[in-house]
Structure formats: C-alpha cells, structure tokens
C-alpha cells in the first residue's frame, strides 16, 4: 500500500489535474530561483564584458567554436528525447519512456565528455585562472591585459562549471527515474517526476542556449 499511496491522489487535492498543476507551479518557482542563481553570474559577465570588450573577445577566441556548436546540438537533441520521454509517459508507453530516458542520459553524457575534453585543453594551454595562468595576446588584434583575459576565463569556468554540475545532478536523477519506470511506477494519470524533471532538463538546456553565443561567439570574425 505504501508504494501505491505515492501514485494516488493526495487527500488535499480535488483531482489529478489540480495536483499536477500544483506540482508544476512548485517546480517553476524553484526554476525561478535557478534563473536568479545563474542570473548573478550572467550579470557579472555583462558588467566585465562591457568593461573589457577586447580582452573578452581575444580570450573567447581561444575556445573551440565547432566543438561548442556540436555540443549545443547534442544538448538540443537531449531536450528532444526528454520531451519525447514526457510524451511517452503521458500516453502510457513505458518501454518508450525508458528508451527515451536512456537516450537523454547518453546525450547528456556525450555533452559532459566534450566539455571535459575542452576543459582539458584549457588546462594544457594554461588558460585556467590561478598561479599557472598564462595568456599570450600576440594573436589578438589589439594587445590585451592578461588580467582581464583571466576574468573572462574565471567566468567561463564558473558559468560552464555551474551548468555542468546541474547536468551531473540531472544525470543522477535520470538514473533514479529509469529505475522507477522499470518498476512500472508511472501511469498516464501520474508521472509527475518525469514531467518535473523534464522542466529541469529543459531549463539547463536554456542556460546553455545563452552560454554558447555569450562565451564562444564574442568575436570570431577577428580570430
């Protein structure tokens, strides 16, 4: 009975629709706090990019744009598979739900793998802020102050790092959801965890939609 109680309608709701609306609203309120959480970093980015546009452009040009674009596409694919997972749960196709959840997990893993490869490049090139930071600006059109380039990389690692940590947390939750789906826990009436996790996963996708042009595409025409 105890496990059934989770899927049933809670006594303080009139029907499943009302219960679902309440859950969705709660998840969105959490996502609004997430918007402000990432927003602080975006604000720091806007302030420093406005102050040091040349240094940000030169530092940004050391990133691998094709790799960033491919990773953006990978994340969009994972958003599609996640939307399809929610859809499968809503029409009661459990096997399809599990397939799409696994696809989402795999695509998230690909994204994180590419990200790790890019981080590795930055470490090799001494572009990680800290005692070993070494930015040569000879290739830039105007010589830039390495300190300002270091600011760009600090924001690059903070923003992509916070984003990647959200994806790692997301990957852990997908594993839990796959286990729940394997136990046939979801029905067309009640698949709220799938729905709400979908919101979270798409939110993380939206953050990357802004990170890609802001971090990778500042000034490639002067590369």
């Amino acid at each position: 009975m105890a496990s059934h109680a989770v899927t049933d309608l809670r006594h303080h709701f009139e029907n499943h629709d009302q219960q679902k609306d309440a859950s969705t609203l709660g998840m969105w309120i959490f996502l609004v706090t997430e918007i402000m959480f990432f927003g602080g970093l975006f604000l720091a980015y806007i302030a420093y990019r406005t102050a040091y546009p040349d240094a940000f452009g030169a530092a940004s040009n050391t990133l691998n744009i094709p790799l960033g674009a491919v990773n953006t596409a990978v994340l969009i694919c994972s958003s599609l598979t996640m939307a399809m997972a929610v859809h499968s749960a809503a029409i009661g196709k459990n096997k399809l739900l599990i397939t799409f959840l696994i696809a989402t997990l795999v695509l998230g893993g690909v994204f994180l793998g590419v990200k790790a490869y890019e981080y590795h490049d930055k470490f090799v090139e001494h572009h990680v802020p800290g005692p070993n930071f070494d930015f040569k600006s000879e290739d830039a059109k105007h010589p830039v102050d390495p300190h300002n380039a270091s600011l760009y990389f600090a924001l690059y690692f903070a923003m992509t790092g916070l984003h990647a940590s959200h994806m790692i947390i997301g990957a852990v939750i997908i594993v839990v959801l796959i286990r729940m789906a394997a136990k046939n826990r979801f029905t067309p009436e009640w698949h709220t965890p799938i729905e709400l996790f979908g919101l979270y996963w798409h939110f993380v996708d939206i953050v990357w939609i802004f990170l890609f042009p802001l971090l990778y595409l500042i000034d490639p025409k002067n590369k």
Binding site: D21, T24, W28, V32, M36, A83, G198, H202
Partner: peptide
C-alpha cells in the same frame, strides 16, 4: 523551449505569471 518543450503555452495562467516574474526580476537585476 519554454513554450513547447516546457509546456508553458499549455500551462495555467498562474504558472505563466510565475515564469514571467522570473524574467521580470532578472531584468530588474
């Protein structure tokens, strides 16, 4: 992504207001 993947287009008015408020406060900041 918000309107279709996150179903905001099909959500309750209350949810839409919450989403808009998030963007609104971000813009204030």
């Amino acid at each position: 992504v918000m309107l279709f993947f996150m179903h905001v287009r099909y959500s309750s008015k209350l949810t839409k207001v919450i989403v808009a408020s998030g963007v609104f406060w971000l813009m204030i900041m």
